[in-house]
Design a binder for these strands. Sequence first.
DNA 1: TTTTGAGTTGTTCGA
DNA 2: GTCGAACAACTCAAA
Length: 469
Amino acid sequence: MSTALVLFRRDLRLIDNPALTAACASHAHVLPVYIHAPDEDGAWAAGGASRWWLHHSLTSLQARLHSHHAGLHICQGDSLDHLQKLIKLSGAEAVYWNRLYEPKSIARDKHIKTTLREQGIDVHSHNAALWLEPWQIATQQGDPYRVFTPYWRNLRTQIAPSEPLPEPTLRGWKKLKGGLALSALKLLPAIAWDGGLAESWQPGEHGASQMLELFCDDAINDYAHARDLPARHGTSRLSPHLHFGEISPRQIHFALREHVKHIDAKRRPDIEPYLRELGWREFAYHLLYHFPKTPTENFNPRFEGFRWNPPDKALLARWQQGRTGIPLVDAGMRELWHTGWMHNRVRMIVASFLTKNLRQHWHEGERWFWDTLVDADLASNTLGWQWVAGCGADAAPYFRVFNPVTQSKKFDPDGVYLRRWLPELADAPIALLHEPWKDAGLLKSSGYPAPIVDLAQSRIEALAAYQAR
DNA sequence: TTTTGAGTTGTTCGA
DNA sequence: GTCGAACAACTCAAA
């Protein structure tokens, strides 16, 4: 009657979970385990919003396991120590997990694997998060890709949607005494700032599949166009679910293809633009794996001596609080603070504003996003900030400076998004809503701040700084 | 080895 | 108002 441990990390689902399925197939008893070890993530331990999500996602996973008469054994502290103790207590002869790809996680898991194998334990790791793992794709010369388009052309030919693994059914779930209650991990905020998150999201496998269903029913039909409009729910909003592994790209791909199969060819939505976005996620993992220093170092070494403005705490605080005086920037930053998420286009705009108009170092934005986003992901966050700042792989050309007013008029022409997040301007006429500084009386009566920077002037200065690089 | 075509998401200016 | 060009040069990836 052999026993296996299944270690859950960022694969918080029962369906299409290769480690869980493999363990259940080969062992009579399976013990699901979660070990909370933020210290092992160093500077990139989960931020506040991510911890909130994690708490609720684990709650959901516990409920899913309970419905199988199983439990989740929770502990906190050194991963290897806990695994060794649990192996002894349960008599397990094997450990299963799904792989992570952050540099620190890779090093830790390698160490755990070596140590346990030396002790005669079988260790099996699986891919639950990616179409192809970072080392499974390379240029013809055998190098990692640095440009998205050829990467995607290659990846696209290798992904064929296949049926997700079913939820495993096993009678022999193992339970041990001595696990922690989830609340002992203290993942929820001490002061309740999380009301907006709870209104906006339903973490967990069930929430993920509901979000996917919603996407299939609605946004995918007009994705190529509506994904650019922040007032609309035109994107999938699956990013936090993907980050925590409540759903996998392969599940999404399969579901989308099944969904569009039954639609008349003339009205069938084109899912390629969305798959391409999943391709960007995959590319981010590819880059982080092959260039592990990029969360803290410029991908492009020519940016070493770049003339960032000196760090300015006051300016940064105004950006963080959504009080820059630029409506679209402020709306985005407030959406982020309230919901733990920001529309993709608006992310680019607030990031361009911070790095180009304010010329604050991209690390500042990277760090703020890390703490406030429910979908904060080291690979995607790194790629995104380096791309906007211009120092990344396949980065935006230096002269690409977003004009938040132009973007606002173009992508939120009726001001629906602005009015939603800037209640003090809700009654302003549309012409002024995009540029409220044009009416001093409006600023005074609304209390909305004047711009903290001159957009035109700062653009010119940014172009000069980037040209001098 | 060398050559060739190409590279997420923009803005401004002038015709 | 619409449209194309300029905004740089570099380096990536494949032929």
